[in-house]
């Protein structure tokens, strides 16, 4: 299935793109997809997605379409879903 990936805030700046599409197996969940994106990404993006051991960063905000999901949640994905990845910001 094809998924739309949307980067926000520091992740967007580090990735150099706001959006991309990826083809994934139907059995993959959000955690798999973040791991796959991390494996293909530059060092900066990778460090915002996963830690040195490859575990998802606890502060990474993930939305599937308009709903937030936790990395531990079982969140079924469908063809055409948009996954938004956001690194929290604190500018005042």
């Amino acid at each position: 299935m094809q998924l739309k990936i949307r980067y926000e805030t520091l992740l967007k700046r580090a990735a150099g793109v706001a959006r991309q599409s990826i083809d994934v197996a139907e059995t993959q969940d959000v955690r798999d997809i973040v791991g796959e994106l991390a494996s293909q990404a530059n060092n900066k993006v990778r460090s915002m997605l996963v830690d040195a051991a490859g575990n998802m960063q606890p502060s990474l905000l993930i939305f599937v379409n308009d709903c937030q999901v936790n990395a531990s949640d079982s969140c079924p994905l469908s063809d055409g879903d948009e996954i938004t990845l956001m690194s929290p910001i604190s500018g005042g």
Partner: peptide
């Protein structure tokens, strides 16, 4: 945001 993001 359970912990400070290292990138900030």
């Amino acid at each position: 945001t359970p912990e400070k993001p290292a990138a900030w």
